[in-house]
Amino acid sequence: MPNYAMVIDLHRCTGCGACVIGCKIENNTPEGIFWAHFVHETVGHFPDVRYTYVPTLCNHCVNAPCVEVCPVNPKAMYKADNGLTLHSTERCIGCRLCEKACPYGVISYNEEEPHRFWRDDTALISGGTATPKEVAERVGGTVLPYYNRDREATYKGIRPKNVVEKCTMCDHRIARGVDTYCNTVCPSKARFFGDLDDSDSEVSKLLRSHSSFRLKEETGTEPRVYYIRKYNPS
């Protein structure tokens, strides 16, 4: 089986956020929930100051604390054969142990019915403007007018209330040989997905030619998301 990983080239990354919006489109995630996200930091004092941006996502750790703590049998949060950390909405009991165990804060919980915005049925100008619900119904979307049905292939298209959700490394796309959507929409060509066990894969080549680091290496989680080079050229 492949041993999937992602490599993010911070030198090429422009901090634009396209991966974050792309992920929201691909996975129909609610407002405030991000499977792909970023952290940023401003260090130093004027004029010697730097702004740094690091894209983040589920690290699909080899030693995944979220899987370890999942109390359900079989586990709702589980490691797939290809190395991905995946989640079953059906088996999830919403205990949120995984969310607490994740050192990276990339697991989210649906405390309320998702997409409250789009379920609203009030209009600002009666008869003159629409309601969110009306738009989605009119155009044939599911809750969201721009709902992406592709997501349903391997996960709930929209995850219900009282369960967690997280990045699946676009398992529905990569199973069909298509790149993850965050990578697809990255205008800066800074993200690479592939098989670590294949020495010809782009990720293997990049990790051979550049030094890399992973987030919170000291926790022993063995993330499968690697970062190469620096965001700031100066």
Binding site: D197, S199, R208, S212, Y227
Partner: peptide, 17 residues
Amino acid sequence: AGATGALAMVSAGCGQK
């Protein structure tokens, strides 16, 4: 981030076809 590639090769285990 500025170090040589050796570190990555060890941790990623990606040297073998």
